[in-house]
Structures are given as C-alpha cells and as structure tokens.
C-alpha cells in the first residue's frame, strides 16, 4: 500500500506542479470601472473587448512578489505568443492598489517588464470596483515610523476574455511554459463555447 502511495505521489506531484490556473465555472461580467495612468491612458470596461487581458494587482514598492510575478508573466506571454495567433496574445495590465505612492510612475514600472505591458491606478472606489468584480483582495497595512507601509494583495492574476468577462485565475508560481499552456487551452475552450 505504501508503495502504491509512493507511486501515486510520484505521478501526482508533477501533475500538481502543472496546475497554473483555474477556469471559472461560469464567466463573470465586469461592471463599469475607470482607471488611468501617467501617460494619459485609460483602462475601463470598453478597453477589455476584442483581446485577452491578464490583470495583476500589486504595488510598486513590493520588493519580492510583484517583480517576480511580472517577470514570470513576461516569460509566460512570450511562450503564449508561440502557441496562439498574434491577436490572441494577452495584454498584461498591472493595477496598483496604492495610487498615493504609485500614480506618477505606474506605467514606467509596467513597461520595465515588457514594452507592451500597461500600468494603471486610479480613485480608490474605482480600484475597489475592479477588485471586487474579480474576487480579488488588498489591504494597506499600518505605516511604520518612517511612514512606509506594506500592502497585502491577491497573488493570483485575473484572465479576461475578448468579450470582457472574467474567465480564469492564474496562480503562482506562474511557471511560464505551464501558464502559456493553460492560456492556450483556455482560448480553445473559449472559441468552442462561442461556436456552440
């Protein structure tokens, strides 16, 4: 029995490691929202239509998780571009939940990871609208003596289809190859659902 369990764990462990995303049972329509950046660009419900979008929430002074996730998303999108048509390569959007500190540099920050990545932030109620609609989370922590504060935020990335509906969540560790495979399969399932 123990040997069976060992064999099972050997088979299951690599499969489990491949789980990079969860497809929602039903697509979720997103409400109106309005975010903007220092380049005068806007991000709202209308800008979601016609292409795939990956939305990550975070803050610029996040030393560890945010740069690592965006770096992995850059690699994942590059991998995805080898699997899907050019117009199906997802647009990556970084949304800062910390507009007080990040409004001036949020688009530079996103473009550091890839020239096509976009960064946005905005009014608190608009951020909260998108956070709630994507079942995401953040919390600004108490400032320390220097005034610096940390931000807790969702680790997962929202996947929004060309019809503007939330379809899936990508999950850490965002292995580029496995994430690209998940996105390519999700797109096939999406096209099938449109043809039914």
């Amino acid at each position: 029995m123990r040997r069976l369990a060992l064999i099972f764990s050997l088979i299951a462990a690599p499969l489990w490691a491949q789980v990079q995303g969860v497809e929602l049972d039903d697509p979720v329509a997103l409400p109106d929202f309005h975010l903007e950046n220092d380049r005068g660009e806007t991000f709202d419900r209308d800008t979601l239509t016609g292409h795939w979008t990956l939305v990550m929430f975070g803050f610029l002074s996040c030393p560890d998780v945010c740069p690592f996730t965006l770096g992995n998303l850059e690699a994942a999108v590059t991998e995805t571009s080898m699997r899907v048509r050019p117009d199906n390569v997802p647009q990556v959007v970084f949304v800062s939940v910390d507009p007080a500190r990040d409004a001036e540099t949020v688009s530079d920050y996103a473009r550091y990871f890839h020239p096509d990545f976009k960064g946005f932030t905005g009014a608190r109620d608009q951020i909260d609208t998108l956070i709630q609609a994507t079942d995401s989370f953040y919390r600004l922590m108490k400032p320390d003596a220097s005034g610096y504060y940390e931000v807790q935020h969702s680790a997962s990335v929202s996947v929004i289809a060309p019809d503007g509906t939330l379809r899936a969540k990508l999950q850490p560790p965002f292995d580029p190859g496995a994430t690209a495979e998940f996105l390519a399969r999700l797109q096939i399932a999406y096209r099938r659902s449109l043809n039914q």
Partner: peptide, 12 residues
C-alpha cells in the same frame, strides 16, 4: 540584486 524597476521604494 535583481535590477529594480523605476519608481520603487523597496526591492530585494
């Protein structure tokens, strides 16, 4: 030390 993106107050 990974090269830090612009505008950050903290990196790793």
């Amino acid at each position: 030390v990974p090269l830090a993106p612009p505008g950050v107050m903290a990196h790793a």
